[in-house]
Simulated assay, not measured.
Amino acid sequence: MSSTLDVSSRARSHDEAPRGAGQPVPRARRKKKDSGRYVAYLFLAPWFIGLLLITAGPIAASAYLAFTDYSLIGSPEWTGLDNFRRMFDDPRFYQSLKVTFIYVGVSVPLQLAFALFLAMILDRGLRGLALYRSIYYLPSLIGGSVAIAILWRQIFGAEGLLNGVLRFLGADNPPGWVSDPSYALGTLIILNVWTFGAPMVIFLAGLRQIPTMYYEAASLDGAGKVRQFLKVTLPLLSPIIFFNLVLQIIHAFQSFTQAFIVSGGTGGPADSTLFYTLYLYQRGFGNFDMGYASALAWVLLLIVGGLTAVNFIASKYWVFYGD
């Protein structure tokens, strides 16, 4: 009798156990799962190949070449830190740094200020806002192109459109803006300010997220438009300003096409438009000194990374996140 009860209880416990518990996964199910994983790897393969061949590979090669003497013809010869020591005795290296820092330090604040100004105008709800937004965004799309750089050189040339207008207005002997060391860099700064479309669209999106009740409360407290801008708009828009500031600084340090086309690839006149990237290009592909050019590239990376880190550290003193 007891043995019959034991058998029946074991049978009930076996029936109540989760189906498949303690049992091996069927081979067909494992095979299907593995095939799904392989399909995922197959779709990811182009991205991994691009990462290795286009990004990680060149970065590693550049890091190695920065410590070598390489002329693109023979084999690289290890020289240690010689390329970095050469920078301390290279006057054009310091000139390129000077020109680039002036370009970034002047053009980026002006560009962001102009972009914010236009964003506030468009935020008033003008008719055809989508059309205006598209038109103002267009310079950001074409501003870095070769065609615009050639057009800029024609406008600011000695016989260009600007001087034609100035002569029509009665000006005598206007300068050749792109051929005068005193004005050449200024024309490129104006070109960068003109490409304000991308930060303007981001500013406009940020302005749309500020609740109107803050402006109504400030108005009831007697704050005018200027005070509302300083005490309401800027603090609440500070994360967007910080975002645009970091992006535009990085973008400005990478500027190359404008200076190359306007100066004919020389950085002239008198190295007044010798951007850091242009000097790097001259050393690498003009003098075939690829080892020194790679060292210059890594110094630029350190400069941009350092400035970005400083911006993030300083942001805690002026960026308001609402917490």
Rank of each mutant, 00 (worst) to 15 (best):
T233A: 12
L81Y: 08
W47C: 15
P18A: 14
L230I: 14
D34T: 12
P199W: 09
R208T: 11
L220C: 12
F196K: 06
F260W: 08
L296F: 10
R283N: 09
L207H: 02
G206A: 01
W152R: 12
D271Q: 06
L110H: 03
L51V: 10
N83P: 02
A205C: 12
Y103H: 13
A171H: 08
S294V: 12
S238H: 07
F312A: 07
Y64H: 11
D90T: 12
S75F: 13
Q95H: 06
V104G: 01
Q23R: 11
P139Q: 06
A158R: 10
T266F: 03
H14F: 12
G36H: 10
K33N: 05
G284Y: 04
L185T: 09
I135E: 01
Y281I: 06
Y136R: 03
V25E: 05
A149H: 02
F275K: 04
Q23G: 02
V232I: 15
K33P: 00
A309Q: 10
I303T: 08
P181K: 09
L307F: 07
L42A: 15
S8V: 13
G176V: 08
G197W: 00
I142P: 00
M87S: 02
L44Q: 07
L234E: 05
A40M: 11
S238N: 15
D69Y: 06
Y64S: 02
I241S: 00
Y183I: 04
A217K: 05
I249T: 15
A259T: 01
I261K: 01
L51M: 05
S8L: 14
Y292W: 04
Y137C: 08
G144R: 05
N192C: 06
T55F: 12
G125V: 13
L245F: 08
L112G: 07
L112T: 13
N311M: 15
N311W: 08
L245P: 01
F288W: 15
S13W: 09
P18M: 14
F243S: 07
A158D: 01
P175R: 06
I135R: 10
L169F: 13
R153T: 12
I249S: 03
A314Y: 10
L151W: 06
N192Y: 04
I142H: 03
P174A: 05
G322K: 09
L302Y: 05
P76M: 10
S3T: 15
A130H: 05
F48R: 14
V232M: 09
G22Y: 15
M120F: 09
L204R: 09
L236E: 00
D82W: 11
F260I: 14
D323T: 15
F285W: 08
S263P: 06
N311H: 07
G224D: 11
L5A: 15
Q95E: 09
F43Y: 15
F275P: 01
A115W: 02
F196P: 01
P239Q: 09
S182E: 10
S182T: 14
L302V: 14
Y132S: 06
